[in-house]
């Protein structure tokens, strides 16, 4: 390692940061579970609440638990997760497109 002699301490995580992340994540967990348990919204609206709180909570975990940002220490982790996201969109989107096309063709042949 090139850094073996030049000892640069990393950014030290704080208890305050983890507690902030935990409280936000807790709220974003209680909201969807609450709506599913008490069924106060329509099914479609509840699914939207689940999706939105899930995406927000992923952001909370990435920011406060995995410490992702554009600082020198974290930059390449952040870039590589964005790249993975791109690969994911291609693979998941492409497969769904393929399945859907297959499904439509099946229906046309079968009926």
């Amino acid at each position: 390692m090139s850094h073996s002699t030049d000892v640069t301490p990393g950014h030290a995580p704080t208890a305050r940061g983890y507690i902030t992340g935990f409280v936000l994540a807790l709220v974003l967990t209680l909201i969807p579970f609450g709506f599913v348990a008490f069924g106060s919204l329509s099914q479609g609206a509840t699914l939207i609440v689940i999706a939105v709180t899930a995406v927000l909570q992923l952001g909370v975990h990435l920011r406060w638990f995995l410490h992702l940002d554009m600082s020198t220490e974290q930059r390449w982790n952040t870039i590589s997760i964005l790249f993975s996201l791109l690969i994911m969109v291609v693979m998941v989107g492409g497969t769904m497109w393929l399945f859907y096309s297959l499904y439509v063709r099946h229906m046309m042949v079968g009926h």
């Binding site: 390692m1 220490e73 390449w76 982790n77 693979m91 497969t95």
Partner: peptide
Amino acid sequence: IRAAARADTEVNFGFWIYLMSDVIIFSM
């Protein structure tokens, strides 16, 4: 200790790349 725990050491970044491959597995 703090230097070894940095996210941008070679080994820790390498492990992060493994986790990214896990992201792809889970997404499928």
